[in-house]
Design a binder for these strands. Structure first.
Lengths: 199, 199
DNA sequence: TTTATAAGTGAAGGTAGATTCACAAAAAGG
DNA sequence: CCTTTTTGTGAATCTACCTTCACTTATAAA
């Protein structure tokens, strides 16, 4: 039927994207091999030509997510050297990324991770830790340059930084898109940046 | 076998608590009628003497959660009239509540809610909205009394307030309890309260 | 004490979904 | 053009649950 035979690298990408789309629209619980296969235009058993099992599809999705997060950090580092501006841009980029890839939080905070295999949990912890560490780096740099109050623990700041966006994202979901996350994030940034700025 | 026959009101409470325990230790995905029944000391089919189906068990759990959240608000209102102190106490109470009932965030942010029936989603939105509204009330009171900067939108403040704790809770989970949420929450409160205080 | 009702049991039916396997057919390499 | 490898297919299996039902039996009411 589907006639076309494509190379496994291409199929793997298609499968991961299909999985992320499926997750974004119906959640992790509806992530099924059959559903993914349908979206790719294959029969369920065909998925097993490209992935050993469902878990490996999820791992590939995590890899994709990790790269997108790190891309943002990298780009922000290239755009400016001002620490506060780096933070602001990272926050807005993050908001944009999540808006466009709603599957990301659903995967990262899913129970497959929370209560799944210790290896995967460790992996996601690594992704989060890595991201937070980059934020802490920016904060420390800002403290050394005297732009950010140095009496505040960089780790506290980086967690609060994530908190600027996260509850808003949840609220956005719950209100079916009624709530304007971007606007909230901007306002929250104003309050937050004033709070951490030195002098 | 189980010999004892208890009244349905008692069983319902036992079942809800068993469900919450099960969720706290193994997540929503492992919440099964069989698992709950085992913890209560019943056979799976017995659960249906007390609840119409699994969904109703979950609804009862939501009711329990809603009451605990509102209890905290109520108690904080009775403890003090100072708005900033009310916020601080609510935050610390919230942290304690979640520490002792880890199932709460798992239920509230579960996909059964996120992508489940619109009715349940609306119900949870109501719970969150109600909680945030109480926080906003406190903020507005503080602004009228000149204790909180009035140029900041109360809604922004209340969402940021939730954000003080939420990412820390996730990080706590991910690090298997290594991370000290209470300490972080206290530090974050200091930064935050300074940021919103008037003068 | 008798009896009606509420609670508890075990077997059975039903569904959804992951995974395997033997077979078919396209593509790549020679 | 022929052969090998890679992809794709459909049927079949296996598992994990939810839920129903015909029965017991404890408990409370009369």
């Amino acid at each position: 039927m589907g006639i076309e035979k494509l190379r496994t690298e291409i199929r793997r990408e298609q499968i991961v994207q299909a999985a992320l789309n499926l997750i974004a629209s119906h959640g992790m619980r509806k992530l099924s091999i059959a559903g993914v296969a349908r979206r790719v235009g294959l029969v369920p058993s065909a998925i097993y030509r490209h992935f050993k099992n469902k878990d490996e599809v999820l791992d590939a999705a995590l890899e994709f997510i990790r790269n997108r997060l790190l891309d943002n950090v990298k780009e922000v580092f290239e755009e400016t050297i001002d620490p506060l501006e780096r933070l602001r841009r990272l926050l807005m980029r993050h908001a944009k990324l999540i808006r466009e890839n709603q599957a990301i939080p659903l995967v990262i905070f899913s129970e497959e991770v929370y209560h799944g295999s210790p290896e995967r949990k460790a992996r996601v912890r690594g992704i989060m830790q890595g991201y937070l560490d980059r934020v802490s780096d920016i904060v420390r740099q800002g403290q050394q340059e005297g732009r950010i109050r140095s009496e505040i623990d960089p780790k506290t700041i980086s967690l609060m930084f994530i908190g600027l966006f996260q509850p808003a994202a949840i609220f956005w979901h719950m209100s079916d898109g009624e709530f304007d996350v971007t606007k909230h994030t901007e306002k929250a940034w104003k309050v937050f940046s004033k709070a951490i700025q030195a002098n």
